[in-house]
Write a protein that binds this DNA or RNA. Sequence first.
DNA 1: CATGAATGAGGTTTCATTCAT
DNA 2: GATGAATGAAACCTCATTCAT
Lengths: 189, 189, 189, 189
Amino acid sequence: MKGEEKRSAILKATMELITEHGFHATPMSMIAKEAGVAAGTIYNYFPSKDVLINQLYAELKEKMGNALLRNQEGTGNLRERFFLLYRNLYAYFMENPEEFIFLEQYSNSPFISQTPANENLQFQPAVVEFLNGGIELGIFRDMETELMTSLLYGHVVAVAKLHLSGRLEINETRLEKAAQSCWDSIKIN
Amino acid sequence: MKGEEKRSAILKATMELITEHGFHATPMSMIAKEAGVAAGTIYNYFPSKDVLINQLYAELKEKMGNALLRNQEGTGNLRERFFLLYRNLYAYFMENPEEFIFLEQYSNSPFISQTPANENLQFQPAVVEFLNGGIELGIFRDMETELMTSLLYGHVVAVAKLHLSGRLEINETRLEKAAQSCWDSIKIN
Amino acid sequence: MKGEEKRSAILKATMELITEHGFHATPMSMIAKEAGVAAGTIYNYFPSKDVLINQLYAELKEKMGNALLRNQEGTGNLRERFFLLYRNLYAYFMENPEEFIFLEQYSNSPFISQTPANENLQFQPAVVEFLNGGIELGIFRDMETELMTSLLYGHVVAVAKLHLSGRLEINETRLEKAAQSCWDSIKIN
Amino acid sequence: MKGEEKRSAILKATMELITEHGFHATPMSMIAKEAGVAAGTIYNYFPSKDVLINQLYAELKEKMGNALLRNQEGTGNLRERFFLLYRNLYAYFMENPEEFIFLEQYSNSPFISQTPANENLQFQPAVVEFLNGGIELGIFRDMETELMTSLLYGHVVAVAKLHLSGRLEINETRLEKAAQSCWDSIKIN
DNA sequence: CATGAATGAGGTTTCATTCAT
DNA sequence: GATGAATGAAACCTCATTCAT
């Protein structure tokens, strides 16, 4: 196992264990064991546990951002592009439930105050541009994009949590309804 | 300070400190100091730190449920009643931002798996009845109430977090727009 | 419950709990609960936990001493009197197994160093006189009485422990053999 | 100091301190200090205080068993072999008084219930065979070997305690008499 | 005298981090 | 770089004792 692989194994182990046990109850020794490295080795890649966790968050957030913008080659109209964003985000959460849970856990804990900004989708200029375009076309409501991105992100998160909690299985029909609900909450009626 | 006051002081200190520092980084000794009692005293009221935190969550969730149903004496039409629910929940979060942050932190951590159900608004039969009524009248979409309550709750949470993060101040105008957006996401267009 | 009853209840609870759980793992609060009194009440009767335990030992040792000398009205010959002593001690242990276990536990722990003397049967002048009589008659070996009392006491203790451990049930036949064995170890052959 | 040395130092310190202060009143911090290691280091070798103590008991019991069977190369007759066993056990106690005191303290405390069997000499098949041989030869009494081993062990223990208590010094003459007394208690007269 | 909540020192154990190998 | 035993501060929790009621 080479250096970069080791680094990845440590990050992966950290994510899985924190997802399962929480920040508390995830000691470095457990991460080392799960990653298949010695405890001291972790410190060759990350100077402290806090940095490790913050780094993990930063990488997952970037990964989520990339997933959000997938499959945009074919243009489509505004509605189709909105649905694509919605489904892209939801699909990422479903494909990587542990990453989703980690991101939510991190976002809602005071760890967050250590990183400069907590702007979930806002960090994607492409999304902001898209929303602004819709506003200018008179299709989206006259709302601040900060509010819009929050509503969009919160909507997908709520549906994903509902599904992962096991309280209601989100099949294709329900997902389509959910995306429509989100669309209706943002477009002018 | 009598027994019941002491118990309350411990719960309050726990909420404030966990809100500020997180589950990790909030030792019992800190809670004791903040509450103005000896460390051992906490154990006269709660058998362990876990129980203390779970108990705190249970009480806050109940308090939130009560706040949600305030001011319902004047009936109003369906839209008015919906807006009242939306504003009630938002008002509770604004009046008790620490409680809100604690609830979110708890809900998104593995602590949650220890309590049987994590059904944010679902636990309020009155809300479910209200939504079912709207569906039967053909005003609300044909959606599972689990999904509806998740969307309603997630909407308010997203707006509250946006405001508390300082990224966008939610004034009366914006709150009205947000409530309208949520309404549009649930009613038939 | 009057004062003297309370004192007895405390001593009894102490003996039972220490027998079951050991010195460690027997907190005062547990003793209080078992005795049916408040924790603070114990301190009206005993100034500290150490004193309570030492006092308990002293009283049980005296009780054992009295049991040892029972039924001596009919004189009997030396052998009969020896067998009586042996059986008296064994009977006391069987009638009060918890007291026996407590006495052994106490005797073999460093608590003992706090009390001036640890002379199991030696504290009974009657026994010493009896043994000295046997020596003078040329029936018992020319041994120090300290050694003789130790051997006698140790013999009964070994048989009692064997029975209480469940490894060998000591019925009347075996008890008679055991007493004979002890007699043979002390008398001149 | 290497790993195995450290482990030994911890066991030795535990034995010495418990012998002196008892199970209660021997905190892990004291053991660590006496052993010359950090408190946490103990947990690299033993998962808990209970396990440490039980492990110590197991190792000492085995050591005692080995000591009991020393010097058997020259066969000797039954009486000589009996005296050898008696003296072997006594010598072990005299050479290792702290181990003896620890073993007695442990055996007489509720810790014992955690280990499956509390069979002092019984665990030595060689001893049982020896005693059975004597019975078949018609030299030893017709007694269960459980009882015989208990009497033999109890006899040596009683003498050792008497000596270590300072109440009677056991010199060679007295030891010979004691062994003879034990022999007489087991052989047919 | 009796109560039992309160105390806080001290118990066992954990765990982030270091460092000799 | 990699290892993992060692460290010791600090975590959770216990419990002998006190004292206001």
